[in-house]
Deep mutational scan, measured.
Amino acid sequence: MPVRRGHVAPQNTFLDTIIRKFEGQSRKFIIANARVENCAVIYCNDGFCELCGYSRAEVMQRPCTCDFLHGPRTQRRAAAQIAQALLGAEERKVEIAFYRKDGSCFLCLVDVVPVKNEDGAVIMFILNFEVVMEKDMVGSPAHDTNHRGPPTSWLAPGRAKTFRLKLPALLALTARESSVRSGGAGGAGAPGAVVVDVDLTPAAPSSESLALDEVTAMDNHVAGLGPAEERRALVGPGSPPRSAPGQLPSPRAHSLNPDASGSSCSLARTRSRESCASVRRASSADDIEAMRAGVLPPPPRHASTGAMHPLRSGLLNSTSDSDLVRYRTISKIPQITLNFVDLKGDPFLASPTSDREIIAPKIKERTHNVTEKVTQVLSLGADVLPEYKLQAPRIHRWTILHYSPFKAVWDWLILLLVIYTAVFTPYSAAFLLKETEEGPPATECGYACQPLAVVDLIVDIMFIVDILINFRTTYVNANEEVVSHPGRIAVHYFKGWFLIDMVAAIPFDLLI
């Protein structure tokens, strides 16, 4: 008679799926529990143990900040960024110097990925580790590398530091407007667009060049630039800015003055950032001319202004700041037409079709709590990747769950009947059967004279019903998954307890 339990259901295979997918890609990662103190490590794979030199037993239950890997060259700011990422709910990448158990130093890129439950609360953290440099290539500990984003994938490793954006290309926007319009339909740009040429040739750093990471940081200074100062900065030398009595002219307006920039070969870094931020506020060169004239017309309804409409929906549905990093990277690809469009465009503009998908598509409701890094690593669709929660398995109709209350009560009843059979069957065979043979035949009273025979008949009927119930009862397979398919249940029961239950259900007393 089957006594099969499996009270692990309803099970959740999400954690096993993450481990299996990460292991298949030869990654070095740990999984931490966000619900406990210090976000203790609950799993670390073999790749991480080989990377740091510690065994799994030495890593388990330690804080996922990996303070046991810190050393003299470990930056405090990087460690603080990892700790801050564990307090938030967004994906974050941090470069930090770690030390192995043998004392060797290596520069590592740590990717902190939160995993949320159905309520939107962070319950786990996945920390992925990628070695960037070994100890002989690690720089000085005073050099802070965590304020910069990861290198873009479309640049060669040897040319990542030679990417320079020439400031004269930004200063000569109005001069290039006529050349853009003359391109017409034969050019790649839309009317009114501004073409910015980027020099990728390796050259020595000069005062006129600005690194790509500095251009990325310009967006942080746009908020500090007032509207009046932006307007004066875009007017140009024809209309000098008016300053109040006793007030000095704005240095932001002076930063885009061609006369002032041409007199000296070098520009201050602050002026460069502010000038680029001011130019980015204009949607095209037409807006710059309109600002000089004193009238700013409404933005025209053409394809170039609607190019950012799908980007707005993608940004609203993005799951991490990696989408913004990807957008900034692609927006700086050289030799393309940049349409400086305000994100607050007309909502009635139709979304044009684009061959290049900048932001990841909208994630469906079932995966809105899973970050983009987890979705990318697992390579699963929205119909396959579940949320991290207890999910009731989908069972067929008329199927009994093996952990249901009805099955528990039924098993206790069958257990009592088995005990009765084990006690009274030998007793009936030894004593009652002998008395029946010696006594007179009682054929007239039937079952009324033999109450134990009636009980034995009921017990046999219950055993037959138990066999039928076992054909529709779920079970737990070797992978700790609840199986509810009727065919698989029948095959599993035939290979197991079916023969024993059938022999126990045969009414031998009635056959004798």
Rank of each mutant, 00 (worst) to 15 (best):
F163Q: 15
D213F: 05
V131L: 12
S250V: 15
M124R: 03
K101G: 01
H302G: 14
G224N: 06
P334A: 03
D197G: 01
R27M: 09
T216H: 06
D321T: 05
G294Y: 12
V195K: 10
T371V: 15
F22H: 13
S243T: 13
D346H: 03
S264K: 08
S182H: 12
A80L: 12
C49H: 01
T152P: 11
L311Q: 05
F98R: 01
R356N: 11
S322D: 14
S322Q: 14
G158E: 05
R312M: 05
V215G: 12
K373R: 10
K166R: 12
G246F: 07
F106N: 01
M133R: 12
S275R: 11
F106I: 05
A83F: 06
E214N: 13
H221C: 13
A277E: 12
N220H: 06
P240V: 12
C265I: 12
R269Q: 04
K21I: 10
R176N: 05
E289L: 07
F14K: 08
T329I: 06
A193Q: 06
D111S: 09
R35C: 06
F98I: 05
P334S: 09
N220Q: 06
G71V: 01
P237M: 14
M133A: 13
P310A: 07
V180G: 09
H368P: 06
T319E: 14
G184R: 11
D136Q: 11
V384Y: 06
K116F: 12
I358K: 06
P237L: 12
G187P: 03
Y99V: 01
V222P: 10
R292H: 14
V196M: 15
G88N: 13
P114N: 04
V94D: 01
G88W: 13
V196D: 02
I30Q: 01
V377R: 03
D286M: 06
S207D: 05
R148L: 08
E177G: 15
H147E: 08
A80I: 14
C265R: 12
V196R: 01
L87V: 14
L170G: 15
L378W: 07
T305H: 12
H302A: 08
L86F: 01
H7S: 14
F129R: 01
W154P: 08
D199T: 01
T319K: 07
C49T: 11
R76W: 05
V196S: 01
A260E: 14
P205L: 06
H254S: 13
G103M: 06
A303L: 12
A268W: 12
T270D: 12
H143Q: 11
R159H: 08
A244T: 10
T337W: 14
L248G: 12
E357V: 09
P361H: 09
S313N: 10
V325C: 08
K21V: 13
A160V: 15
D67V: 07
H70Y: 10
S179F: 15
F129S: 01
G88E: 13
P245G: 11
N317A: 10
S250H: 03
V325F: 11
K362M: 08
S304N: 07
A223V: 08
I333Y: 09
S278W: 08
C265Q: 08
K364Y: 03
I333M: 15
T162A: 06
S209Q: 05
P258N: 11
G262C: 04
I336A: 15
E58M: 06
A285Q: 05
P347V: 07
R271V: 05
S283V: 11
N33H: 07
G47K: 08
L296A: 11
F163K: 15
M124E: 01
F29R: 01
D119W: 05
S351I: 14
R62Q: 13
R176E: 06
N38T: 06
V215M: 06
P202N: 12
C39R: 14
L380E: 04
G192T: 08
P361Q: 12
N12E: 10
G226A: 15
Y327H: 06
F340M: 15
A193N: 15
I288P: 07
E274P: 07
V112D: 01
A89H: 07
V36R: 07
N45F: 01
A34M: 06
E130W: 06
R326W: 05
P150H: 09
